[in-house]
């Protein structure tokens, strides 16, 4: 053997270190999630870049300033921002050890997320009824893809959140569920930040 472990802070070493062990594993998972978020930033960055390139390619068809209905978009924004805030409260409740509060505030967050998705789907359906689809022109291809990808991320987050609430109800607040709550709230804040960019680049710059 090379050198022998005598130091106490090596990982995965037996029943005696269980708590420590878990903590280590969980922190590694959180770190990995941060890296995943970096790759997601690049994914959205690429979509934003394509949107920027195609921002004027309406091919003589409908333009964003004709089509966008800002009140709905502003409502979506407030709902999503609020849900970010409530997911923060959920994490605070978790740190207090309040399981019911945690699940409750997660439920509020999920409900707000669902209403966001509802409004977005409604917006898309309205656009389609007015004759604007993903195939209308390059601009609308980029619009539906960028905004839709964000919506898809939120939807995945919703399913995940529901699953997590069930796990919390069954298992309570443990190091594992705690890490999961931390990660999903990180994810939720991230989607919020992406939405701010969507709002600015797609909607505000579209109608201005």
């Amino acid at each position: 053997m090379a050198h022998t472990a005598t130091s106490s802070h090596d990982k995965g070493h037996g029943h005696g270190h269980d708590g420590h062990d878990h903590h280590d594993h969980e922190s590694i998972k959180v770190f990995g999630f941060w890296l995943f978020l970096i790759t997601d930033v690049i994914l959205f960055g690429t979509l934003f870049a394509t949107f920027a390139v195609l921002r004027l390619s309406t091919d003589g068809g409908p333009t964003p300033d004709e089509m966008f209905k800002m009140p709905g978009v502003i409502a979506e924004t407030f709902i999503l921002l609020t849900s970010s805030f409530t997911s923060g409260i959920a994490v605070l409740q978790m740190h207090k050890g309040n399981k019911k509060g945690l699940i409750g505030w997660l439920a509020v967050t999920a409900l707000l997320g669902a209403s966001f998705i509802f409004l977005e789907v409604y917006e898309f359906i309205e656009l389609v009824h007015e004759g604007v689809t993903i195939g209308t022109s390059a601009y609308w291809s980029a619009f539906f893809t960028l905004v839709g990808t964000h919506g898809l991320h939120v939807s995945v987050g919703l399913i995940w959140m529901v699953g997590l609430m069930i796990q919390l109800a069954r298992r309570g607040i443990t190091p594992v569920t705690q890490r999961k709550v931390n990660i999903i709230s990180l994810y939720w804040h991230f989607l919020d930040v992406v939405w701010i960019f969507v709002l600015t680049v797609v909607y505000l710059m579209g109608v201005m």
Binding site: R55, L56, T58, G60, P62
Partner: peptide
């Protein structure tokens, strides 16, 4: 100066 008149865009 991004926009021209109604619906007519210099596409990129």
């Amino acid at each position: 100066a991004v926009k021209t008149a109604s619906g007519e865009h210099a596409g990129h």
